[in-house]
Design a protein around this nucleic acid. Structure first.
Length: 249
DNA sequence: AGCACA
């Protein structure tokens, strides 16, 4: 009679034991794999060293990814802190992976090259293509142009004091250049680049010598800038969440 | 919904 864990779909203990690898689903399936993996890497590296990020585009594995950490503590922290984090507009659902990742098994010495694999994982049946639309936004992601367009803030990552106070809404003009504020004063362009360069369309980071704590980050177009902004909004480089808006034109 | 190792 050990207690019951489920508190109504929240997902604490799923009967799966802690693992250095976390399994993520409910990911936005419109995002291209490469961008997705890089973004996951960017968002999760704050919890510890990441060994590998895996994601696949097969029907059976769309919208899912595995992030392999170096240690269980990092995975646990990531699981807890990033649960329901709005990622490309969808709350991530995170669990521990059910099995050990190959990369870990290889380090273990317990790796067995897949022999007991099911052979029917390929189903070339229905190959219908539906083209009711052109690809909506394969590359751009940025359907919305508002920085506050998140779902529900997961934790204290989001800086805005969304209190009852009503503010005069500023007119937001999208720009391929982002304006980043509230950075640690010793942040360097190189440091910022590590975060911002991981999103498609990244061009450069510019800092102003005379004004510590701010930076401009340029992307190829507004959609790319928007995607990066939404993913990094409120992200903590050191300990304070950074604030990202579009640069003024 | 869906737990793999292009």
């Amino acid at each position: 009679m050990s207690g019951e864990a489920a508190a109504g779909g929240g997902g604490e203990a799923n009967g799966v034991q802690p693992n250095v690898t976390i399994y993520i689903n409910n990911l936005n399936e419109k995002i291209k794999l490469e961008a997705l993996k890089k973004s996951l890497n960017a968002v999760f590296s704050q919890f510890g060293k990441i060994i590998e990020v895996l994601a696949f585009k097969t029907l059976k594995h769309k919208g899912q990814a595995w992030v392999v950490f170096e240690d269980v503590a990092s995975a646990t922290e990531a699981l807890k802190r990033m649960q329901d984090f709005p990622f490309y507009d969808k709350p991530m659902k995170i669990q521990y992976a059910k099995t050990k990742s190959d990369v870990v098994a290889k380090a273990d010495g317990t790796f067995v090259p897949r022999e007991k694999r099911k052979r029917n994982d390929e189903k070339p049946e229905k190959k219908q293509k539906r083209e009711q639309h052109h690809d909506v936004n394969q590359a751009g992601v940025g359907m919305h142009a508002y920085p506050g367009a998140y779902g529900a803030p997961p934790l204290s990552q989001l800086p805005f004091g969304a209190g009852p106070k009503v503010m005069m809404p500023e007119i937001i003009v999208p720009n391929n250049i982002l304006f980043v504020q509230e950075l640690p004063h010793d942040a360097t362009a190189l440091m910022l680049q590590m975060f911002f360069c991981q999103y498609p369309g990244f061009k450069e980071v510019r800092m102003i010598e005379a004004k510590p704590g701010i930076a401009f980050v340029e992307y190829g177009d507004e959609g790319q800038a928007t995607a990066a902004m939404n993913l990094l909004q409120g992200f903590k480089i050191k300990e304070n969440p950074m604030r990202i808006t579009y640069a003024k034109k």
